[in-house]
Design a protein around this nucleic acid. Structure first.
Lengths: 332, 332
DNA sequence: TTGTAAGCGTTATCAT
DNA sequence: ATGATAACGCTTACAA
């Protein structure tokens, strides 16, 4: 058992409120009793009980973070950003994983409520509307990272990478390299980041006076295998693309693999650009050109937005710019 | 504000203790008042306050998890295992990252103490003895995942992959492929997992009657660049190795990169085996042969060991077997 | 400057 | 079967 303020009070021969005041550096306690109590507290291994304190203070200084999977490299780096920022503001991070199961997601919400977290941060693009609705009723500020742009609930904020601008940059880069037949391999359908990136892609094509060919927009899954399959189908086209912009890096890595198997030289025969800049993008061969998401910054921003809402400030949604990282898969 | 048990009591016209009993399904309350109260609780959006409950119950049902970096793919998967297991046992996960900074590590320990976590799980091999000592004095069960084998404190348990056996399997595999000059690229010096893997490597060589050449054991860093440099120096040897066993996958990936740059064909000119089986091991080209760590299982086991200690059981350290995953980088 | 007492939301021990 | 009361460890009026 850890000593409480009462134990210290007894040892110091004062009341427990004096101890409380001394430890919180209140001016209402004399200098020497203050040092005496503090030394005693240190010697007795005192540690303030955050629960008891939060009970009376009305806040837990804890933020709940839900992820679909922490093993996702993109999400992991965002969590890292959240954690680092929480730490500097003396906030704790309560973690929960939804594993894409609505039941787990609901359980996470209830767990956060029971623990009276001050705010919730949702890191995932795979949030169902149903779940989002439940999370919106939690009664504390909610910040969505890279979530849907539609916000059914007023209390819900969001911070995202600029998907459209990212798609635009990627496509623009390929156009500048001289490519005219540029494919887009989608992620999971119906999700807004995928559609936004495509909008950027289409915008760049339009701007370049490049004709839009529906055959060049194919379905992926957001994972490597989806990229592999997509590339196969693109190669079967009468007039295959010379470049491909992928919804994300994993898709691009699948494309790289399928290309290698098919004897395609990247970037000579096919230029490839991804999205996210997951750590491994720079390690695959050829190293992947990609639109880097400001992962740590997304996490930091999410945490800071939550803090700002808690401080009573008026906070608006944010969208952060991605950055085109040119590597070998699109080098000229 | 969330309704408390008292609010429900008032609405139901009973005392708050009756509400408490009804909600915890005590037999000491009549069936109809029970349903009445429960319905009311649901309607009023009641959520039990975990802090208040923990204060009187004496446990928080929360486990503190410290990692060096959650962005580390190996660690992330272990955390996932911990979280999943915690979830099934109705335990919460409080996350902290040490970022290899002793100050952060100490802050994490203090944070865990203040929040009165029931147990602590340390996921990292990079724990300094100093920090380990501090964490040992936290007064709750501590489980080290892939940590030092030396345990300065009696309250500290550990679960690790069998590093020696892993090193043995990897080397044995290369020997069976006909290699005689097999190098070992170390990780960071002085850390026990690295030494253990080397012991397995040496054991396999000895068993095969293969002469041990000190030149073939070189220094790495545990990261890709270390692998690159190490391979360069190995290639400068008068009699270079035909195969290399790397401390971990990142090192092996560096070797793959350097090999490609040097025009080496893997596995024909050089066979490469890694350790860990991080997700990307299967995506690099050639796909990496490696000793897979049972990542989720390590996390699960760590959590279950903590739970068992809390249940008063006698718990012993565990070491889990890795599994050799043969891929292209060592195919014959 | 210090002590007393109330209260945060629970559970648990008494009575009734 | 239910209610009153104490307790968990803390902060904070309110007294002294």
């Amino acid at each position: 058992m850890i000593n409480s303020i009462k134990d210290i009070a007894r040892a110091a021969g004062v009341s427990h409120s004096t101890v409380s005041r001394a430890l919180s550096d209140s001016p209402l306690v004399s200098a020497d009793t203050k040092v005496r109590i503090r030394r005693l507290a240190r010697e007795m291994g005192y540690s303030p009980d955050a629960r008891a304190r939060s009970l009376v203070k009305g806040r837990t200084c804890t933020v709940g973070v839900v992820v679909t999977s922490i093993a996702d490299p993109l999400i992991a780096e965002v969590v890292q950003g959240v954690e680092a920022t929480a730490c500097t503001h003396d906030y704790n991070v309560l973690l929960a994983s939804s594993r894409l199961e609505p039941a787990h997601a609901m359980a996470a919400v209830e767990m956060f409520r029971s623990n009276r977290v001050d705010a919730v941060i949702v890191i995932s693009s795979q949030v169902s509307a149903f779940y989002l609705d439940a999370i919106g009723h939690i009664g504390v500020p909610v910040v969505l990272v890279n979530g849907h742009s539609l916000r059914p609930n007023g209390r819900m904020l969001s911070v995202s990478v600029d998907n459209e601008q990212g798609g635009y940059m990627a496509t623009r880069h390929l156009l500048e390299l001289g490519h005219r037949r540029i494919a887009y391999i989608q992620g999971l359908v119906g999700r807004s980041p995928c559609a936004d990136r495509m909008r950027g892609y289409l915008g760049a094509l339009r701007e370049a006076g490049c004709e839009r060919d529906p055959d060049l927009i194919v379905q992926g899954t957001g994972r490597a295998q989806g990229g592999e399959r997509a590339l196969m189908s693109l190669r079967d086209l009468p007039d295959p693309p010379t470049a491909v912009f992928c919804y994300n890096d994993m898709t691009a890595i699948g494309v790289l693999q399928a290309g290698r198997r098919a004897g395609l030289a990247v970037p000579r025969d096919l230029a490839v650009v991804g999205f996210d800049d997951i750590p491994f993008a720079s390690y695959v061969s050829p190293a992947l050109t990609t639109v880097a998401q400001p992962k740590a910054e997304l996490g930091r921003e999410a945490m800071e937005m939550a803090l700002r809402v808690l401080a009573g400030e008026e906070v608006a949604d944010r969208t952060l710019q991605g950055q085109l990282v040119i590597r070998e898969s699109s080098a000229c």
